[in-house]
Design a protein around this nucleic acid. Structure first.
Lengths: 145, 145
DNA sequence: TGATAATAGTTCGTTTTGTAACTAACAAGC
DNA sequence: GCTTGTTAGTTACAAAACGAACTATTATCA
């Protein structure tokens, strides 16, 4: 290496956050991908419906900050997989209420358990106080109130 | 919402890490995209070459943990933009040594300054001790030694 | 040496994403 | 009621990512 530099790339927060995020989702990604053939956005939609109950696509867009076209495509896939059903609203026939089917709920519960175990395993790398602080900081950085 | 659930999605570390990572790169992405027409991988390659000096594609693959096809395409783009030059190694003619051109170095220095300022702005949301701890934790989660 | 394996990097076909434009339904003001 | 504007969600086309297979070169070892 000829010309070096004192800038520490591995201290740059967006870079570190990205590397940590990617590394931390590797194992879990394999799970929902191999077991249920889902993509990341599908998994997120499933989790939102599991965690918050019936929602409209727009609600998920707002909460998860994912573009509506991605949500639209993910919902289509989840409907094809019989994990989600759409119910056209009578009040406003532009919007659909999305709900998990029993199969969707079963997948959600399965993945939720795995997620919780995975989270515990990650947390074990640090003290309780550290993890609490980490979550607080990440929430603030993510702009989640 | 009909059936709720006590699983707190927003406490799930991989999710939080992703949201924080995405939010934190938004502004910076605009910069290298609008000013230099670069994609994320191109920016990363540029930064690696700027920070560590001459490297082979494989070195970047190892350090940044980005797939070699992505690196290959990013390098091609950077060469087209006259930010990087390839020099075929005489020892092993399979590999190229990659180096920044003066224009590449200028772009790097510009972006490096912006990155440092951006990092400082992010850090100001927390105390010095918190930021130190955050970096430590992210490094460990990312598997950076 | 000569066969086999390994490595650096690229290319090709497919999948996924990004962005803009679109349809359909509702809302607001005149 | 009839424009005009907004909102929910989809579609279409282009850009980008993924992964397998490929070329070219070097390494291993019988």
């Amino acid at each position: 290496m000829s010309e070096e530099d004192d800038f520490d790339l591995t201290a740059f927060l967006p870079y570190l956050l990205n590397q940590a995020a990617e590394e931390s989702s590797l194992t879990f990604t394999q799970l929902y991908k191999n077991k249920y053939g889902m993509l990341r956005t599908e998994w997120r939609v499933l989790f939102h419906l599991g965690a918050f109950g019936q929602m409209r696509a727009t609600d998920i867009v707002t909460r998860a900050r994912i573009h509506k076209t991605k949500i639209s495509r993910a919902v289509t896939k989840l409907v094809e997989k019989r994990f989600v059903v759409r119910a056209r609203s009578e009040d406003d026939r532009r919007q659909d209420f999305l709900t998990l089917t029993p199969a969707g709920r079963a997948a959600y519960l399965d993945l939720r358990g795995a997620a919780a175990a995975y989270d515990r395993a990650m947390s074990r790398k640090f003290t309780d106080g550290e993890v609490r602080l980490l979550r607080m900081m990440l929430r603030r950085l993510a702009g989640i109130e």
